[in-house]
Each structure stands twice: as structure tokens, then as C-alpha cells.
Design a binder for these strands. Structure first.
Length: 500
RNA sequence: GGUCGGUUGGCCGAGUGGUUAGGCACAGCUCUGCAAAAGCUGCUACAGCGGUUCGAAUCCGCUAUCGACCUCCA
């Protein structure tokens, strides 16, 4: 199963065959959220993307260690030298709360949302504030190696020296250090503590009003944002691990600086493969919480947004995300969500039909049998080709048509074997639930089966009317349900219903 | 201004030298008490211009346009 997994390495810019450091094992680190406000949909897309990657690696049989951090200190607004303030510290000051209260509140919300989207929790979810000691140690190590310097209680990474020693700073993001000089030349006057404009803070002396502070050899202060990921990935995955992931927008400066820090402390890059998830767009523009252009997941689920005509369930949104490749931008529109909803339900309906099927026996491996097996293999090949979920879905939808045709009698069980049907069932279960992480939409908001029970009763009564050719009553029930946004579908052997 | 990446049919979105993406929408047919669902069929696109090639959506160049990053962002 592990054969031929390829992934696009952002560092080399090429699709490469995946070879883990340790046979059969994968260490993966994904940059998590900074918990200073509610998680927005763009964040969710990144974490859903890496959730599918995580799931597929596990499915392939790898023993995966998945680490995703929580940033709860060090993430600055503005430049470290010019009136910068830690995001969490600022929020705490504005709301007159203990910083850890802010952190806990938004971290809880983040976890809730990850659960709603059915993402698997990482194995380790380390927090920056829990690793201050290790961060101070890494700052010291980088200082000892001569790649950082202290200035007025703060410690800066010496990018120029790093570039001299290792040839290049900016390899991941394709930046040249000369350009970085030119870019920020105008701001040089504000950067008197830095020797070079592209240098970045790894330890920051706390201003008197700053709430989050720790004692370190250089000052009472707090760690730079980029440092935590170097420290925690190294601590939990080793000095060299397999895959590092994150949002595209973290490439520079965050990941670039992470690489520099790891060189500074360990003498080499942190990982073999860099994976970057692309942005979710809204109206053709990046969704970001810092400007107004964003939709909160909650607004999506209630439909309460000027961008939406109706509500969409979390699984519809997850399916919508799977319809594009993780490395492509995805433009969120109401039309696209509606299309996604229809497609998702078509897939799930077929899944239900398929799992309820029993082979009558005696089938032979004809053309149909071959086509089904080919589509199954194609779906796995698609996933192994840099986690191409949209392509894999296309393969599954070919199979959806086969399933529906078998059900409708347009195709015959005589043309496929019992074993192939079993394989098809297994494939659908594996893909839909294990790999894609989709779930049944739960229409029964009562949570105790009351709605399902009532619906069964109503549909039974309608069936009785239909048997008696009492079309008036039958249609009245159907129309009334439609008013409640419930669609009744009369199948050949039974009636089903869906909401929305 | 610099760097990088897009531009695919009515919409979303795969695809990188010759072969059907897929979903949604739309039209016709089949099935059905009617409708829905389902099946079948049709709609067959690749920003523009030029070049390479037997052959380009796919490679190269130019133009237009959109976006991301360069400052906090998944």
C-alpha cells in the first residue's frame, strides 16, 4: 500500500517520491493557530487539508506522529522594534483579562470547531508557553553557534551571517537577502537594534506594560514567534523529521526563519518535505481575520452571512474543500457550496445504497467487474499522487454511477463477482469515512431519535395512502414536508428523506 | 516597486505534449400515479497574440488580467 506516494515539496518545488526517515514511520508537524480570536474558515481549510493528509498516511499503514502546535505567546502585531505588541497580550490588556484566559477561550473554540469538521486530533498539541525553557535553551544554542546577537536585552537572529555560512537565506520562499535589504532600506532608521533589516527577534525584551514575561539570561521578556515551532518540532519529532506543513502564507517569514533557527541550533534543516496548503478565498480575495473579508464557520452553519443564501452543514463544507486540491486556492461562493451540497449527498446516498446491497451470487468477472476494479485502483492512485482529493472523488463518482445502476437494474450483478462488490463496499467505507473524514449529516437535531421516529411514522402513513391510491393525502404530506425543507424520495423499495 | 502563482465550458474544479476529468446547472428521453430520486443522451472549454512540434489547454516568449507574499495572518 505504501508504494509510490508522491508529494509536492515546496522547498524544492518538485513532486517527489516520499521516503520516510524511518521505515514505516512518519513524523509530521503542522503550524497551528494563534489563539487570540475565533478560528475562521480559512484556518479550517488548512487543518482539514492536513487532516486528510494525516488520515491517508495512516491509512497507508504508516505509524504517524502528528504534532500541531498552539501559539499562545510571541506572535506580534507589527515589527518587534517599533511598538510591537504580542497579539495575546494585547487582547488580554484590551479585555482586561488574564492572557491565559484569552488563550483558553479561543483554544476551546478552536477544538470545538475541529471536532465539528471531524478532524482527528494531533497526537501532541504543544503550546509555546509550555516550552519557554526549551526556547531559552535554543536561543542560547544559536548564540553559542554565533548566529545570533544580543542587543538591549533582545536577541536577534543574524541572517547575514547565516547566509554567509549556509549560502542562502530565503531558499524556501525564493527570496534573496539583497532584495530584503533593498525592501526595507527605508525602514532602517526604525531598526537600530538590528544589524541587518532581515534579522528577526528570537527573544524580545518585554516592555513594562507587557503582560506575558519570563526571566531569561538576556532580559525579562518573551520568545519570538518563529522560535516555538523550531523548538517544539525538534523536541517531539527530533532534529530531523519527515514533513512540515502549514498555510501558504507562513512560508515567509515564519517557515523561512524556522529553517534558519534549526540551522542555527542544530546545523541542518528541520525536515525533508515542506507541504503548504493554499488559501481559501472569499469573493476572489483572501479570507483573513485581520481585514473584514471572512466568514466564520458558525455563520456558514446558520446561513447568517450576506455572502450566503442558506445554511450549510459542516460535512458539506468539508466535502466542498475536498473538491479542490490542497495546494490550489479555493474560491468560496454560495453557488459552489450549493453544488457541493448536492454532490456530497449524491455520494452519501450511493454509499448507503451500496452498503445495503447483497450479491445474489454467481457473478462473473466481466467488463463491469474490470471497470469497477480499475476505478478503485485509480482512486488510490489519485490519493497517492500528492493527495489529489478532487481526482479521487472523480473516480469515486464513476463508481457512484455504477452503484446506482446496479440498484436501478441498468447494470447486472451477473457481471461482477461477490469479491468485487465486497471490495467496492470496503473502498467506499475507507474513502468516505477513514480517508476523507466525512460523516453522515445528522438531520435529527433532537439528538434522541425523536425526529427520525416521527419521520418514519409520517412516511408510513403516506405509504398507506399511496397503497390505497389516495394521492390527495399522499401529496399533501409530501408538500407539507417540502414546506419544512424536507425532501421525500420514493425509491423502488422504500422511501427516504433528506433535509435542505 | 520586488518575488511568486493563477487565468479551463453557465458555475465550482482536476488535468501538463496526442486519450471522457468529476460535481453542479441546463435540455431531451426512460422509469414513476404525479413529482423528486435514479439511469441514458446532449452541451466538449482551456485569457489574447506569437513561437517550438507531425501534434499544445499542457513547452517557450510577449501582452492583458487576477491573486498571494514582501508587515500580523492557515
Amino acid at each position: 500500500m505504501k508504494n509510490g506516494l508522491q508529494l509536492f515539496n515546496s522547498y524544492t518545488g518538485k513532486k517527489e517520491v516520499f521516503t520516510p526517515i524511518h521505515e514505516g514511520q512518519v513524523g509530521i508537524y503542522v503550524c497551528g493557530p494563534t489563539v487570540y480570536s475565533d478560528v475562521h474558515l480559512g484556518n479550517c481549510r488548512t487543518f482539514v487539508s492536513f487532516d486528510v493528509i494525516f488520515r491517508y498516511l495512516q491509512y497507508l499503514g504508516y505509524k504517524v506522529r502528528y504534532v500541531r502546535n498552539i501559539t499562545d505567546v510571541g506572535h506580534l502585531e507589527g515589527d518587534a522594534d517599533s511598538n510591537a505588541e504580542d497579539k495575546i497580550s494585547k487582547k488580554a490588556r484590551l479585555e482586561q483579562l488574564e492572557p491565559m484566559q484569552i488563550v483558553q477561550h479561543y483554544m476551546n473554540g478552536f477544538h470545538d470547531m475541529m471536532r465539528v469538521f471531524n478532524t482527528l486530533p494531533p497526537h501532541i498539541e504543544p503550546r509555546a508557553t509550555g516550552h519557554i525553557v526549551e526556547q531559552i535553551e535554543m536561543v542560547q544554542a544559536i548564540l553559542d553557534n554565533g548566529l545570533a546577537y544580543e542587543a538591549n536585552g533582545s536577541v536577534y537572529f543574524d541572517t547575514l551571517k547565516f547566509a554567509e555560512q549556509h549560502g542562502v537565506y530565503g531558499a524556501l520562499s525564493g527570496r534573496k537577502i539583497e532584495d530584503l535589504i533593498a525592501e526595507s532600506r527605508d525602514n532602517l532608521k526604525n531598526q537600530d537594534e538590528k544589524r541587518h533589516p532581515s534579522d528577526f527577534a528570537i527573544w524580545i525584551k518585554a516592555a513594562p506594560e507587557h503582560l506575558m514575561r519570563w526571566t531569561a539570561p538576556w532580559s525579562v521578556g518573551f520568545p519570538g514567534w518563529h522560535l516555538e515551532c523550531s523548538v517544539m518540532s525538534t523536541k517531539y519529532l527530533g532534529e530531523k523529521f519527515d514533513i512540515h506543513g502549514g498555510g501558504n502564507d507562513l512560508k515567509f517569514p515564519h517557515h523561512e526563519n524556522e529553517i534558519a533557527q534549526n540551522y542555527g541550533a542544530c546545523g541542518h534543516a528541520p525536515c525533508n518535505y515542506w507541504l503548504h496548503a493554499n488559501m481559501l478565498l472569499l469573493n476572489g480575495k483572501k479570507m483573513a481575520k485581520s481585514d473584514g473579508n471572512s466568514i466564520m464557520p458558525g455563520e456558514l452553519f446558520t446561513g447568517q452571512s450576506p455572502h450566503l443564501t442558506k445554511a450549510y452543514s459542516p460535512m458539506v463544507v468539508r466535502f466542498f474543500m475536498l473538491q479542490s486540491h490542497y495546494s490550489s486556492t479555493l474560491d468560496l461562493t454560495d453557488d459552489a457550496l450549493q453544488a457541493g451540497e448536492k454532490g456530497y449527498r449524491r455520494l452519501m446516498e450511493a454509499q448507503k445504497l451500496l452498503q445495503a446491497m447483497a450479491h445474489p451470487g454467481g457473478g462473473s468477472a466481466g467488463t463491469l467487474d474490470k471497470e469497477i476494479n480499475a476505478a478503485i485502483e485509480q482512486a488510490f492512485a489519485d490519493m497517492s499522487d500528492d493527495f489529489n482529493t478532487p481526482k479521487a472523488l472523480a473516480s469515486l463518482f464513476e463508481l457512484v454511477t455504477k452503484v446506482n445502476s446496479l440498484k436501478g437494474g441498468q447494470l447486472s450483478f451477473n457481471d461482477l463477482t461477490d469479491a468485487t462488490l465486497d471490495r467496492l463496499k470496503q473502498t467506499f467505507n475507507d474513502f468516505i469515512f477513514t480517508i476523507f473524514g466525512l460523516q453522515e449529516e445528522n438531520f435529527d437535531s433532537s439528538g434522541d431519535g425523536v425526529v427520525d421516529g416521527l419521520m418514519q411514522l409520517i412516511l408510513d402513513m403516506r405509504q398507506t395512502a399511496r397503497t390505497n391510491k389516495d394521492w390527495g393525502t399522499s401529496d399533501k404530506i409530501r408538500d407539507a414536508l417540502k414546506e419544512l425543507d424536507i425532501v421525500v424520495k420514493d425509491g423502488k423499495d422504500g422511501v427516504t428523506w433528506t433535509k435542505g
